[in-house]
């Protein structure tokens, strides 16, 4: 065991990171109506209440629709961007990639407000479609980063071998490159899905009257009576996110192993 003091610090730090999340299940299964100690009895009534709630179901359906579409769009756009940036040199590459990556650092309030102003002045009605526009935009840089790692670890001679064996550019892409980057694509889809599912600001400004899960949660936070149910909902969301991310991480690592590259770790 190296770094005794540092290890203790790192573990304390992890505990600090996880502490709030660990409170979710504690109060989601507690029968008390206010979120406070001491705990009362064990109950699953908040989960039952959640399952019966019609507006919550609507929000869930909206969120899932948005997340599925945005993750597919963002991943498709990410494939183009990753392939172009890892394989080809072209003019103004830096500025172009910079613009595509910009949503990573730009505060979401700026993205959503500027998009909102344009949509309103063009006369587009706000709906889940407009949220998809925004979510695809903010997921695109993440998809591009993940897919660039996948494309980067490709051995170019495999592609050249395919050309030599008479494949066209498209069939070489489909038969050789695509299967090799498939784990990266799955990982990108899952990451984008998770980001979209959790995203609040863009959905808050661009959804009009349509609720998504985060905006539904936000609207319920004012009502103390609803808080235990929100804790139950939060538990479900966090468990879902962790599952999705674990699967994404599994595919990311498998992709790296498949192309024989060294694992540099982490999503960023």
């Amino acid at each position: 065991m190296k770094g005794g003091g540092l290890r203790a610090y790192a573990i304390a730090y992890l505990l600090f990171l996880y502490a709030p999340i660990l409170l979710l299940p504690v109060f989601a299964f507690n029968s008390g109506t206010i979120i406070a100690f001491p705990l009362k009895e064990f109950t699953t009534q908040w989960f039952a209440q959640m399952a019966e709630n019609a507006s919550l179901r609507r929000a869930l359906l909206n969120s899932l629709t948005i997340a599925v579409c945005s993750s597919v769009f963002a991943t498709c756009l990410g494939i183009f961007a990753a392939r172009a940036s890892t394989r080809f040199a072209f003019p103004a590459k830096g500025p172009i990639m910079g613009l595509i990556m910009l949503p990573l650092v730009l505060p979401e309030i700026i993205v959503s407000i500027s998009l909102l102003v344009v949509l309103l002045s063009v006369g587009v009605k706000l709906s889940i479609l407009t949220v998809m526009l925004g979510h695809t935009l903010i997921c695109m840089p993440y998809a591009t980063v993940i897919l660039s790692t996948a494309f980067n670890s490709l051995d170019r001679s495999l592609e050249e071998a395919a050309y030599d064996l008479g494949e066209t550019r498209w069939s070489a892409f489909r038969l050789v490159i695509l299967p090799l980057v498939m784990p990266g694509i799955i990982s990108s889809l899952l990451m984008s899905f998770t980001i979209s599912l959790d995203e609040f600001i863009i959905a808050f400004f661009l959804a009009g009257n349509e609720p998504t899960l985060p905006t539904y949660i936000f609207s319920q936070l004012r009502f103390p009576k609803q808080i235990p149910m929100i804790m139950a909902l939060g538990t479900v969301l966090v468990v879902m996110s962790i599952l999705l991310l674990s699967v994404a991480e599994y595919f990311r690592r498998r992709g790296i192993a498949k192309t024989g590259a060294k694992d540099t770790g982490g999503f960023l």
Binding site: F80, A81, F90, I96, I100, L102, V111, S114, L133, L137
Partner: peptide, 27 residues
């Protein structure tokens, strides 16, 4: 190389211009 690269980057770039750059310029 440049032509192929630009051809590939066109869809994501077009999207970023439409949904990000144009709104920022409007602001």
């Amino acid at each position: 190389q440049a032509a192929q690269g630009l051809g590939l980057i066109a869809p994501p770039l077009g999207y970023a211009v439409l949904v990000l750059a144009a709104p920022l310029l409007t602001i």
